[in-house]
Design a protein around this nucleic acid. Sequence first.
DNA 1: GCAATAGTGTCTTTTAGACAATATAAG
DNA 2: CTTATATTGTCTAAAAGACACTATTGC
Lengths: 258, 258
Amino acid sequence: MSNEQALQQYDVKKYRTPDGYTSDIAVFTILSAKEEAFKPPVMDLKIMLIKRSMVDSEGRPNMEAGKWALPGGFVNPDESAFQSAQRELREETGVDHIHLEHFGVYDAPGRDPRGWIISNAHYAIVPEHQISNREANDDASEVELFSIGHVLDLELAFDHAQIIRDAIAVIRQKLLESAVAKEFLPDEFTYSELQAVLMTVTRDSAITLDAAFARKIKSLPFIEEVEGKKTTRTSKKPTQLYRFIDIEVNNSIYHTKK
Amino acid sequence: MSNEQALQQYDVKKYRTPDGYTSDIAVFTILSAKEEAFKPPVMDLKIMLIKRSMVDSEGRPNMEAGKWALPGGFVNPDESAFQSAQRELREETGVDHIHLEHFGVYDAPGRDPRGWIISNAHYAIVPEHQISNREANDDASEVELFSIGHVLDLELAFDHAQIIRDAIAVIRQKLLESAVAKEFLPDEFTYSELQAVLMTVTRDSAITLDAAFARKIKSLPFIEEVEGKKTTRTSKKPTQLYRFIDIEVNNSIYHTKK
DNA sequence: GCAATAGTGTCTTTTAGACAATATAAG
DNA sequence: CTTATATTGTCTAAAAGACACTATTGC
């Protein structure tokens, strides 16, 4: 096999290679802004950041120390960026077993003062209870949730302001164009709870008007009524519960929604 | 500024770093399978591949020599993967000035026998005339277009079979969920020409039925009639021309298409 | 009974689907 | 006048939008 010859003569040093390969993770959750009896929730979309320690694990001054940043770190040679993202998230924040998705690569020359460092950005969408055990570890001195409306006012490390802007745009779109809103809700939910989730990203009248939305939820092909099951957690009048069903959503712009 | 101290003590050799950072490009085009007078076109979606040379530019045996592959190559330290993709495409195939988009990262350990090599995958959607001057150069001994139905039967280099599978899935979705079909069409086109493009990725009756589609095209918010302009290139009866207009398409699954 | 949320009734307007019928022009 | 595409007519059914009205329950 001629690949063997090629490999013998291949000089791995021939090309200048990157100085680092990293992963960053934008974890989003939704908190109920206030929790009152018999009230539909008002929700607030949050992103989880860490505060970078002043010194690294070996006691030396840390890069971008004291700034807020996405959790993340260097990829090991025996793992993919995706696996690294899961590991770093666990190591820095204690958060594990959540569903991540890759959404971008950040490799502009000069983005990191330490050299030619390439970062893979991931996002996750989780209910708050999945990250309630978060805790700063490793490189992180604090872990905190920030409203997406305010997060960009912080002093952010590296080019994380840009990554966060992009992540917010991605999840706004995902919330409306896919059924991921499911991830922010209990298995069985009322129309007003789904509405509250969607209202964190749009003020469109088709969603904000109660009567319209209460009707629409019944005709959505990917949501079904939980027959005969009601709750009083959002109002005094018992409210119908719904659940997502697992079907692929046809989102063609040339088709009718069915 | 404490970053300076951190930088002084930062050891770029501390982490094992990747052995290479590359870009690959999947260029798609649509060819009219047959071109007859007064007939609507029948179209075929194609992807452009290169055949890897037996020897590299310095005369040494090439990796994966003789196999078909996506154009692409190593990223230089002073460019992003995106810029590298444009350069490699130009160098290997002579194709320049086309719109690329990033769609994935391939970094599974072991994917490239030469070492830890990370690749960024890009796709492009272009009318055939934009790549009609393609010509093999550099590492490539041939450039050819393959139907997406047959391309996976070829002997493909590295993990390009997987990248190509992913790219095909991405453009199928893009064609239906965004207005990129535009890129395969002249500025002014008939309903049957748009229909032919969409039929390369779906056989759904809402698109294949002439009367239904001819009506639907008039109500699509992102397409307008070119007033009073007709052509006879697809039929003896003069046919209305349409054009895409540049508006963002609301593709929310909770909204009505308007 | 009041207040607050959930949900229905009903009317009007649009849209979709089906399929038959008509329009146009080359040859 | 035949043929192949393009396009409209027409009917039916379903969906959407608007807004008033009803339902339920804690207090």
